[in-house]
Design a protein around this nucleic acid. Structure first.
Ligand SMILES: Nc1nc2c(ncn2[C@H]2C[C@H](O)[C@@H](COP(=O)(O)OP(=O)(O)OP(=O)(O)O)O2)c(=O)[nH]1
Ligand SMILES: [Mg+2]
Ligand SMILES: [Mg+2]
Ligand SMILES: [Zn+2]
Length: 619
DNA sequence: GCCGTTTTCGGCCCGACTGTTTTCAGTCG
């Protein structure tokens, strides 16, 4: 166990009695402390991410063990709640909020606490001992759930994909009760799929694959209405499959046409109301078909999320109703007719909830209290910052970028090329930056479609110092501080590094605050809540980086930052003219975070925007 | 394991498709 005698959280002086009692209530920690006879120096051994992972793992292990599914759900739910909480685990524990959090009761509070402080949990270790970790790979195979995996393991000792594949080929799976010849075949196909294709794709990739499918379905003569649903309609950052809904008088005909589309490689399921396929590009797609008067209910169901649906259906129950994808029904069988989705929410005494907010987080509470935020819309942006040109690693000239921004209807465009430390990106030194300013001055004097604002994406060095002197940054209209190297710091170091940067007078906001690359690279360890607090204290902004690989700051964290009075700025981080259009994904993020026009700085007209920029500077 | 406009026990969303089944469990949406 690492020793850190002067850690602020665990130095005895800083300990509130309440906190000590909370920690002592944990059995393992209690024994440990008793054994030492005094309060030991402690640090949180597990970071939040690891605790979340373990909770999710416990949920799966409980399923495998055949435990009460609601218990498993409680663990999944707790993991989800922790994940969407912006506050650090340390702060949750210190403030005593952990046990107060909805979905975390006495038992889970104690388990989380024990995990965080000791790095281990007997309950977890015992469960884990029952099943080899490779069983988790088997669960990724379509149509293989906990029951079947457990059977395979306990009767045949099958632990891995390879072993399962061999067993299928040897035709010994079919001997098990509940398994047969077709199951063997399906498993083999499933293994192939898991090995070949990614489980999720980025939003834009799903969007472009969805477009032609949607066209085909909606233009089919048997189709009355059609919509994209699921995570695509909710504008999630990554997508598992393309969910399509249609209404029709001839569902069979439409489903047949869908499965026969040229993009379809394999049909993984087909019935009288829906079909599932895998496309040539490896992306899966589900089509659901209902009668036209059922369309609003089906749209609501198929848009989800699952968690939102569960909450909606529970709420319907409290009115004595039953809600499914076909109708809203009273106990006596009477049907409450709804012409559109809005009417469903109203029937449940809720305000309408836009799809982006339907994640089963706070939205039902907001809708009950008439407090659903009004969201920023596509077209609300009046300009944008943080764009690159050929001067560093961009592909377009200043003029080309400006023309493209003008074509989007923008009034201003902020150039933030890399600084000299980013040598791999041809970062600008002081001299080249000055040359770029001259070029910008010339452009602005001549007058183009947009006003170009002078900026820099200045590297944040290891210690939080910046790659340009403060005077230079203050001469810019804005400055983005970004981490592009030295990712492998501790959470405390990285947090301090970012706070140091955001406290610099010249910095406007941090670029892509957590450094994640979706489906590719985890964020570097950083206490986002602390950085956001520092951002608020210093009157700075938060960047919503619209690059689809980044979408950073994440919408969940933006949602948490909503009440802290911080302004956001949606920027494309564009490296070519086409990249400017990525701001639409940044707007998706803002909408998912419940942000309105007023919270986004670059919804302001040029003059107001420049005034706001000045306010991020001292004096 | 959580939780309370039915409150501290007894619920926890509801339905489609598949394969193996002789009436339904498992998985998925
Ligand atoms: N009522 C109910 N609806 C569900 C359940 N599972 C899924 N749905 C609905 C809501 C989902 O948004 C919709 C599509 O399911 P998907 O599995 O495709 O999930 P979704 O699109 O939300 O996310 P993903 O595909 O993973 O990116 O079906 C469930 O267990 N109960
Ligand atoms: Mg989906
Ligand atoms: Mg789906
Ligand atoms: Zn960058």
């Amino acid at each position: 166990m690492p020793h850190r005698t002067n850690h602020p959280l665990f130095s005895p002086a800083a300990f509130e009695l309440k906190v000590i009692r909370r920690i002592l209530s944990s059995r393992v920690v209690f024994d440990m402390i008793k054994g030492q006879g005094k309060l030991p120096a402690m640090d949180l051994i597990l970071e939040k991410k690891s605790v979340i992972q373990i909770l999710e793992e416990i949920a799966v292990l409980l399923d495998l063990a055949g435990e009460n599914p609601f218990k498993s759900r409680a663990y999944s739910n707790a993991a989800r709640v922790l994940e969407t909480t912006g506050e650090s685990l340390e702060e949750l524990i210190r403030s005593g909020q952990l046990g107060e959090t909805k979905g975390i009761g006495k038992a889970l509070e104690e388990k989380i606490l024990t995990l965080a402080v000791t790095g281990t949990l007997e309950y977890y270790e015992k469960l884990r001992g029952q099943f080899p970790p490779t069983l988790f790979d088997l669960l990724k195979i379509p149509n293989l759930g906990p029951k079947k995996v457990k059977t395979l393991y306990s009767t045949l000792g099958i632990q891995s994909l390879d072993e399962l594949e061999k067993a299928c080929q040897a035709r010994i799976i079919r001997a098990l009760s509940g398994f047969g010849e077709k199951t063997e075949q399906r498993i083999l196909e499933g293994i192939e799929r898991v090995r070949t294709y990614a489980a999720r794709v980025l939003l834009p990739a799903a969007e472009s694959a969805a477009q032609p499918l949607f066209e085909s379905v909606s233009s089919h003569p048997a189709t009355l209405r059609a919509s994209l649903c699921g995570s695509l309609r909710r504008r999630r950052e990554t997508i598992k499959d393309i969910d399509l809904l249609a209404s029709s008088r001839e569902p069979g005909e439409l489903i047949e046409a869908f499965t026969g589309l040229p993009q379809v490689k394999t049909i993984t399921g087909q019935g009288s109301t829906k079909a599932s396929v895998v496309l040539e590009n490896g992306i899966a797609s589900d089509l659901r078909v209902v009668a036209d008067d059922e369309f609003p209910f089906a749209l609501n169901y198929f848009t989800g999320s699952k968690e939102h649906n569960t909450l909606m259906r529970s709420r319907a129950r409290t009115f004595g109703y039953r809600l499914n994808e076909y109708a809203l029904t009273r106990e006596n069988g009477e049907i409450l007719s709804c012409q559109n989705e809005e009417a469903i929410y109203w029937a449940l005494e809720l305000d309408y909830i836009p799809p982006e907010l339907r994640e089963g987080l706070h939205e039902i509470g907001w809708a009950m209290n008439r407090a659903v935020p009004s969201l920023i819309e596509y077209g609300d942006l009046k300009g944008t910052l943080h764009c690159h040109t050929r001067a560093s690693d961009g592909e377009a000239s200043l003029e080309e970028m400006a023309a493209a921004a003008g074509a989007l209807g923008y009034q201003y465009l902020g150039i933030g090329d890399h600084s000299k430390a980013a040598f791999y990106a041809n970062g600008l030194d002081e001299k080249r930056l000055a040359q770029q300013w001259e070029e910008i001055d010339r452009y602005n004097r001549q007058g183009g479609p947009v006003k170009i604002l002078k900026g820099s994406e200045v590297d944040i060095l290891r210690d939080g110092e910046l790659d340009f002197a403060e005077e230079i940054l203050l001469e810019c209209d804005f400055a983005v501080g970004s981490v592009h190297s030295q990712f492998a710091l501790s959470e405390a170091e990285m947090t301090q590094r970012l706070i140091c940067a955001i406290e610099s007078p010249g910095i406007t906001f941090l670029g892509h605050m957590t450094g994640r690359l979706l489906l590719q690279r985890e964020p570097y360890p950083v206490d986002v809540a602390k950085v956001i607090d520092a951002t608020a204290r210093n009157g700075k902004w938060i960047e919503i980086n619209s690059n689809p690989w980044r979408l950073d700051l994440d919408w969940r964290a933006c949602l948490e930052a909503r009440d802290k009075g911080v302004l956001f700025c949606i920027n494309p981080d564009a490296h070519n003219t086409a990249g400017l259009a990525d701001n639409r994904y940044g707007i998706d993020v803002a909408r998912k975070a419940g942000l309105g026009r007023e919270a986004i700085a670059n919804t302001r007209e040029l003059n107001d925007f420049c005034q706001l920029l000045k306010k991020t500077r001292p004096g």
